[in-house]
Design a protein around this nucleic acid. Structure first.
Lengths: 229, 229
DNA sequence: TCTTCTTATCGGGGAATCCCCTATGGTGCG
DNA sequence: CGCACCATAGGGGATTCCCCGATAAGAAGA
């Protein structure tokens, strides 16, 4: 909310953007696309987190566009690092992956928007402008979901939904993520299969997951992230 | 080896190329890149297999550049279909994935080359020219491996279990790892649920997995590892 | 060429799981 | 005490899993 907005610039000073993506063809496509706009320009490109931090330091851009699946350090980490050092920097995450998987993580990491590479190029420009104007960009499909998830989370906003699980639920969640079937978990904990089914239902409800596949998917991810944390 | 080579054209007739990729930004980047060349032009774009076949029929291009990971029908299937109907068409496969997994499949499917999106744009142009000249393009790292493999240096030395999957099986494996249910995969590929069940059974057998949970677990891990190169 | 192997595609049918609803005690809290 | 949440579990229909088998096409090999 400070002086980094486009209207703070005169017309002879374009908004400078750094593009971070490990695919040259995508960087170049973005550069051509944005340089065609009157008030935008790509002032630098980077293909990994290290180059990105250097470019930011040297070029002082107004905004960064980051692909979240980079080679070395993940784009997610890069977003956190950028925000840590430049809290006012505008960041738009760009990805080939479906929003439903990463949008929330990306916003928590500090980005102001998430857009998929599958979007039309006009939408990409629109997303950039929205973020530059200080707003959050998410697709029309995703935005309402996210509001529910973040606001509906009730008291401890910012705490992940996982923290609201009971001990038993968390235990089942971990076992699910380790690949145990419902039956195996029941035997492991000396409980009825029906009980485990109830826990799984609660998990899906609390974590806002649609079906067993999504539950397993998120559980595995969580277990993996625990290992490295 | 017939009359589809560039030297068969006069300088006022550019080589026409159709680009198939489900990311508009990539299509546009490629178009800008290639139109800048004197003798090349992108005459059409498509974001899925259906559009691609229509574009080919209408525009009669000299060459197709195909991303192998499309939404609907996979790029691999598209390559086979194109070759079935237009055996002389030049095809270059483009992908974000590492060559070692897909290069061989892509060549078997009928393409004349495989290049990664992580390559420098000059290399992409070079690959296109090599394919247009009737040669096979593979990266310097990959080409020797492929020769050894095709010439038949022993039975699948060091082949990981995943490399022994058929194209269709691998496609289903990937979709499983992306969290799609059996039904969703069937709808996505316009196949019977029973067919997908068969593929899942084959996957479990070939990868030595005991049940659906293990299958999903391994598929998710594999997809995750693919993303990060 | 004839056979065999692999691949791609589907179905039957029973066992298992998923999923929505309901239920009973227990515990903590205002 | 009532309310909320937790741990536990069943009924029952929809769906999936999983072990059978089957057909047709193509490749490979004898």
């Amino acid at each position: 909310m400070v002086s980094k907005k486009p209207q703070a610039k005169s017309e002879n000073r374009k908004t400078k953007i750094v593009v971070v993506d490990d695919h040259p063809i995508v960087r170049q496509g973005l550069a051509e696309l944005l340089n065609r706009e009157d008030d935008l320009m790509v002032c630098g490109q980077a293909e990994d987190a290290h180059q990105a931090m250097q470019a930011i330091k040297a070029l002082k851009p107004d905004m960064i566009i980051v692909d979240i699946s980079l080679k070395e350090t993940s784009g997610m980490e890069l977003i956190k690092d950028i925000k840590a050092r430049y809290p006012n920097m505008s960041i738009l995450a760009l990805s080939m992956h479906d929003e439903s998987l990463y949008a929330e993580r990306v916003l928590r990491a500090g980005a102001e928007g998430y857009i998929m590479k599958a979007e039309a190029t006009e939408n990409i420009v629109m997303a950039i402008r929205k973020v530059l104007s200080g707003q959050i960009y998410l697709s029309d499909r995703m935005a309402p979901k996210m509001v529910r998830k973040l606001v509906g989370a009730g008291p401890n906003v910012g705490a992940s939904a996982i923290e609201r699980l009971s001990d038993r639920e968390l235990e089942v969640f971990r076992l699910v993520g380790q690949g145990y079937t419902t039956r195996q978990i029941a035997e492991n904990l000396y409980l009825s299969i029906k009980t485990i089914e109830t826990y799984r239902a609660h998990l899906k409800e609390k974590l806002n997951l649609a079906n067993a596949t999504e539950l397993l998917q998120h559980a595995i991810r969580w277990v993996n992230s625990q290992d490295k944390g």
